[in-house]
């Protein structure tokens, strides 16, 4: 469960996030939308502890994130699976090794790593490309490798930042149904997207930010 309690984030001379209070339940799927500069990225960065709130309190899984010390940030982030708009794949290794990376960090056994990576790649339809270098894949395929990497360690929370940003409508719809499938097995999914046409068809809560403020989809607290 994620609880924003009057969270604000101020950079040098402007407020990226102002006084946001909302709750996202475990097992929920929400979209985060707004114009560029509305605070979507900062919202996600606060969740990942890439930034710290300058005011208010952010609780993740009943834990006050301000108590998470620098050394414990790695462990904290392992509760999340993250899908990046620019994929953040490593081109010096194969698709398989990219997907296996979170499992190596978490210290899974080799047998387990093989099994899970294959299952994740199978699920995104890229099992045949496991020995390929991600650089030779198309944008949509790279995004699916990113998704496989995000879910391979079975995180409780899946976060995606503009996962369909560079994809055509049909591919975007496929990616979204993949996220819905993960949500159906109990994973919390938070997706930042400005593709309103796509996300409004999907009947999930839509959190709208404008100029750092919450203007829609606040939910209970």
């Amino acid at each position: 469960m994620i609880v924003f309690d009057r969270v604000g984030k101020r950079f040098d001379n402007h407020d990226a996030i102002r006084d946001i209070s909302l709750t996202i339940d475990s097992g929920e799927m929400v979209f985060l939308t707004g114009h560029s500069g509305a605070g979507k990225s900062t919202f996600l960065r606060l969740l990942m502890l890439l930034e710290r709130p300058t005011s208010g309190c952010l609780m993740v899984n009943h834990r006050d994130t301000s108590r998470v010390k620098r050394r414990a940030i790695g462990t904290y982030r392992r509760d999340f699976g993250i899908v990046f708009q620019d994929h953040q794949l490593l081109f010096d290794r194969t698709v398989f090794d990219n997907v296996a990376l979170p499992l190596h960090i978490a210290g899974f056994e080799m047998r387990d790593v093989n099994r899970r990576v294959r299952a994740a790649l199978d699920k995104v339809g890229l099992l045949q490309r496991e020995r390929a270098n991600p650089a030779v894949l198309s944008g949509g395929e790279q995004q699916r490798v990113g998704i496989a990497r995000a879910v391979v360690a079975r995180p409780k929370i899946l976060i995606a930042d503009e996962p369909t940003g560079n994809l055509d409508p049909q591919l975007s719809a496929e990616i979204m149904s993949l996220f819905e499938a993960f949500n159906q097995v109990g994973v919390m999914v938070v997706i930042a997207s400005h593709d309103l046409a796509l996300i409004s068809r999907l009947r999930h809560r839509i959190i709208t930010l404008n100029n750092g403020r919450l203007v829609g989809g606040g939910g209970h607290l």
């Binding site: 079975r154 149904s177 993949l178 499938a181």
Partner: peptide, 15 residues
């Protein structure tokens, strides 16, 4: 490409 709509296999066996 796999079937997107089915429950996601890699989460099976959890808990």
């Amino acid at each position: 490409m796999g079937d997107w709509s089915v429950a996601v296999g890699i989460y099976e066996g959890r808990n």
